[in-house]
Amino acid sequence: MRVALFITCVNDTLFPGTGKAVVTLLRRLGCEVEFPPAQTCCGQMHVNTGYRDEGVRLARSFLDTFAAYDAVVVPSGSCASMVREQYPKLAAGMGATRPEAFAAAHGGRSPFARAVAEVTPKVYDLSEFLVDVLGVTDVGAYFPHRVTYHPTCHSLRGLKVGDRPLRLLSNVRGLELVPLPGAEECCGFGGTFAVKNAAVSSAMCADKVGHVVATGAEVLCATDNSCLMHVGGALGRQRAGVRVMHLAEILAATEAGR
């Protein structure tokens, strides 16, 4: 099985540690992972901010880059859901504006739509890949800390990863998992929403921070570094003493690696 890592532009640029952790973890589980160098970005920021053409260009390039692989692992629920949930809508939307002309030109389905249908089912969020493809919930990790988990919106309601991350975390030795009140509520990041509607975003974040602090956890874990950057940025500003960590980093930690 050829497994590719789609690191995502945010992780690539700002959180390389998460990518390294994914590589470490997958190797430990006996899985060889490739990093296709042509990759950049799934196009989510552009599409979700209203720049569809630019986003579609990035989507095309994503589909080209990953077409040859059997599985694409993404350490971001949000980017994985962009590919799996939104690419098909982009493909359908292209046909929606002038359906007749479109069907005539493409014989019913465009090359983009065909690529979407081929590639997107092979795209997995990290927790899905571990549990569903590799079939493991105990990855042999050791992390002796009090951790709370925030299910980010796009992994929860978009990908519907369910309790996979929690199952993975609950098998980490030494880890004390504490439930997060109001866990399913959005943290307020929302991509450019965090800046375009900064006041609302910050108010949502403040409530999330309050819940996180109330758990007494040392670490806030999620599967999306963009949400963690947002909540972590506020935790840091308040000197709350809570670290944020991507799921991959906790799962990559072992007793030997202390």
Binding site: P16, G17, G19, V195, G233
Partner: peptide, 27 residues
């Protein structure tokens, strides 16, 4: 500025993931 009103900026790493991958051949 809208970001930093309530949130710190994450520190930029010394090296991006792709540079790390190239330098170390994927570790």
């Amino acid at each position: 500025a809208a970001w930093t009103q309530t949130r710190d900026v994450p520190s930029v790493p010394e090296e991006s993931f792709r540079d790390w991958w190239d330098r170390t051949e994927g570790g």
